[in-house]
């Protein structure tokens, strides 16, 4: 191989190739797309519809009027899609490691941090498509954020997708076998989702239990939800932005460390 290809143009080609492969795999796995869509829709159509009869929420930023439960829960469901997608990507990393496909990626001459970040971004691109498909359907269920919100939510989705993907990437380095993955799903996805503001606002939880509210406050997923919620209604939640950006750097750094052959955990495994 010509060493000239190790330049930035070569890296761009490499990045596009990784995204292309992820998109191709995603397009071939229709059931993955459907399940990613059905899960939040079940919450929206059934759970949220049921909850609508018992409560609505008074005006509280970013909302300026009383809102129905469906409207409240929609951004949390967008984040849920990304949470599942991030962890699903890590599942595919563990699978790739077991089948040997991971080696194909890691023997590329480009730096490992670059390869892993590219893989992460490819997963984020897939999750963004899923979220927009969900928002499109939700629009017909009277979840109608301002049109500009659909555009402004994009950077929020990219950032939150990166945070959750980086978490998945880190977990994939720590999981030795595919069989252990179900346990991680139970210990990561469900606690993260239920102990966040995806389903109930912080102030309401605080009224009932300040301790539980503290758990919500320390859960980085809460900030993904809020970042998306505010962006969807054309506002910026600066605290959420800072926490999500910081946590992304932390998780990604940990994942790159774990996959580094000279430092991390991969070299210690057989």
């Amino acid at each position: 191989m010509s060493l000239e290809r190790l330049n930035w143009k070569g890296r761009l080609t490499c990045f596009c190739g990784i995204v292309w492969r992820e998109a191709l795999r995603f397009a071939k796995q229709r059931e993955r797309f459907l399940s990613a869509l059905v899960r939040p829709l079940v919450w929206l159509f059934l759970f949220a519809a049921g909850m609508r009869t018992v409560q609505g929420f008074p005006p509280d930023p970013p909302y300026q009027t009383w809102i129905s439960y469906e409207i409240y829960v929609a951004p949390g469901l967008c984040a849920m899609i990304q949470l599942f997608n991030g962890l699903q990507s890590s599942l595919s990393m563990v699978y790739d490691r077991e089948t040997g496909a991971m080696r194909t990626l890691l023997v590329s001459p480009y730096p490992r941090w670059f390869l892993l970040s590219s893989k992460l971004m490819a997963g984020v691109a897939v999750s963004v498509v899923q979220v927009y498909a969900f928002l499109l359907i939700a629009y017909f269920w009277e979840i109608e954020p301002p049109l500009i919100g659909y555009l402004l939510v994009l950077p929020a989705l990219i950032l939150s997708g990166m945070m959750l993907g980086a978490l998945g990437l880190f977990l994939s380095s720590a999981i030795k076998q595919l069989e252990n993955f179900a346990g991680v799903m139970n210990f990561v996805i469900f606690p993260m989702f239920f102990a966040s503001t995806a389903l109930y606002p912080l102030w309401r939880v605080e009224e009932n239990s300040p301790y539980v509210a503290d758990i919500l406050r320390y859960n980085p997923f809460t900030y993904c939800v809020e970042l998306i919620r505010f962006a969807l209604y054309a506002q910026v939640n600066w605290t959420a932005l800072a926490v999500v950006a910081g946590t992304t750097v932390l998780f990604l750094g940990a994942a790159i460390y774990a996959y580094d052959p000279s430092k991390g955990m991969i070299g210690r495994k057989r």
């Binding site: 191989m1 290809r5 190790l6 330049n7 143009k9 070569g10 890296r11 080609t13 490499c14 596009c16 190739g17 990784i18 292309w20 492969r21 194909t104 990626l105 590329s108 001459p109 480009y110 390869l115």
Partner: peptide, 10 residues
């Protein structure tokens, strides 16, 4: 094609 991309080949 994927392998080519991993080596910077268009």
């Amino acid at each position: 094609r994927y392998h080519g991309a991993l080596h910077g080949i268009g």
